[in-house]
Amino acid sequence: MKLTLKEGFFISRPRFWMYVLGTFLVGVISSGNIFLYDNSTTFLLIAFGIFFSLPANVLIYGVNDIYDYQTDIFNDKKIKYESVLSLEKHKSLWYFIFFLIIPFLPLIFSINIPAVIALFVFLFTGVFYSATPIRAKSKPPLDVLFSAIIYVSPALVGFFITGNTNISWPAVLAALIWAFGMQTYSAVPDIIADRKAGVNTLATVLGEKKALFFCFAAYLISASIGYLYIGFISIVFGFIYCAIVLLSIYNFSKLFKYYTYFPLINVSAGAVLFFYLFFKEIL
């Protein structure tokens, strides 16, 4: 059974595109004034910007859908909020993934070694977060670590492509810790389904409340480190994320409702961060 283009598009989770495309753009702008790059660098940035839209998201979420099928059929969140791709279409999905990814692979010969390493780290974690034999998502704490790297590594790709290798690693650490919280929070609504399917995650190991307190701590630490770089903005969004987690702890029945707000909050936070860095660099 063939996969339709519409199905392929929605497998990429368009509402989540900015999780990797957005971090790529933040990495680009944090490396310097984008108007000062030569034509070759500009071309590469545009090409990889396209890659981190549909192709990269089809890769990470398509592989996830294939290897999570046995879990997803028990998951109310997946059935009601997203969709479960029929088993007969998995082969077509593999072809769709390769069709989108392969045209970008020759670009690795045009970028520097740090960017190549960051790109392969993204590809490795993006595939083996869900795929066997590693299947990191079922081996805590690798589930949280791999997921965080998936969403942070595009920023490193963007940063290094510009030729700037003078990166601030504490800022990268803050982003990873923030992603720890994001991954764990998104896994809490899946706890029941994951336990039914015998899938271990950090959330299933900790349980609902401890997992949410872990999220709270992650957002608090991330915001504290972020304050050193973006000041008041980090405190504002740290407060927002911590507040949502506290609401989830003390009003657990509405957790899934709060979860559906996260794409909007994340995109808003990313946009504010991008434009803050943009005007900081060009002014």
Rank of each mutant, 00 (worst) to 15 (best):
A203G: 02
A203F: 03
A203V: 03
A203T: 03
A203R: 08
A203H: 02
A203S: 15
T204G: 08
T204Y: 09
T204I: 01
V205L: 11
L206D: 04
L206F: 12
G207Q: 04
E208Y: 04
K209F: 11
K209V: 00
K209D: 12
K209E: 15
K210P: 01
K210H: 12
K210Q: 15
K210M: 09
K210A: 13
K210G: 02
A211R: 12
A211Y: 03
L212G: 00
L212C: 03
L212I: 06
L212N: 00
F213V: 09
F214C: 06
F214L: 10
C215P: 12
C215I: 03
C215R: 09
F216H: 15
F216S: 05
F216P: 15
F216N: 04
A217D: 04
A218D: 10
A218C: 15
Y219G: 08
Y219L: 01
Y219Q: 11
L220E: 13
L220H: 10
I221Y: 07
S222L: 06
S222P: 01
S222C: 01
S224T: 14
I225P: 00
I225T: 01
I225G: 06
G226R: 14
G226I: 00
Y227T: 09
Y227V: 10
L228H: 10
Y229C: 01
I230F: 09
G231Y: 05
G231Q: 10
G231V: 08
G231T: 05
F232V: 08
F232P: 07
S234D: 03
S234F: 03
S234T: 07
S234V: 00
I235L: 15
I235S: 09
V236G: 02
V236F: 15
F237D: 02
F237R: 09
G238V: 03
G238E: 03
